[in-house]
Amino acid sequence: MKRVTEYLKSLLLLELAAGLWVTLKYLFKPKYTLRFPMETIPRSVRFRGLHALRRYPNGEERCIACKLCEAVCPALAITIDSAPRASDGQRRTTRYDIDLFKCIYCGFCEESCPVDSIVLTDILEYHMERRGENVITKPQLLAMGDRFEKSIAANRAQDAAYR
């Protein structure tokens, strides 16, 4: 008897029909996909994307050229030169380069920075068109910081309790 039922089951392709039934049900369920460039998946406040250098609210740059981020970077992606600033003799960076091709987006630079200057923003859609554009310089980083300060600050505030 068992063999007969087995045979019938096999002949009627029951297990294949069961599988097809699963896929058929999904045909009528709401789609899981998003229309990407127009809408994106949600992004965590901890997201580690493109770098930026921040400023204090009074417009002064935060970075004090302590070079902690340079020391902690496992990929050796950060290069810093520093000198006393001509106007007031404060210790500032004269060069702050990040090589985005070397960077592994580990977040250690942000973790180490004592004045919350270097941060990883939640921006992930960026590209380079020419060789050399992968090295982003201090003015570019500061511009990134100025442009996205609001979202950077909001994300940091939300996560402050955990850091």
């Binding site: 998003l34 229309r35 127009m38 809408e39 998946i41 949600p42 992004r43 965590s44 406040v45 901890r46 973790e111 939300q158 996560d159 955990y162 850091r163």
Partner: peptide
């Protein structure tokens, strides 16, 4: 571990389609 688990989960934002 680096940080504690977040108290809030990230959510989808409203869009024209959703």
């Amino acid at each position: 571990v680096y940080r504690d688990l977040p108290a809030k989960m990230i959510q989808y934002k409203e869009s024209r389609w959703h």
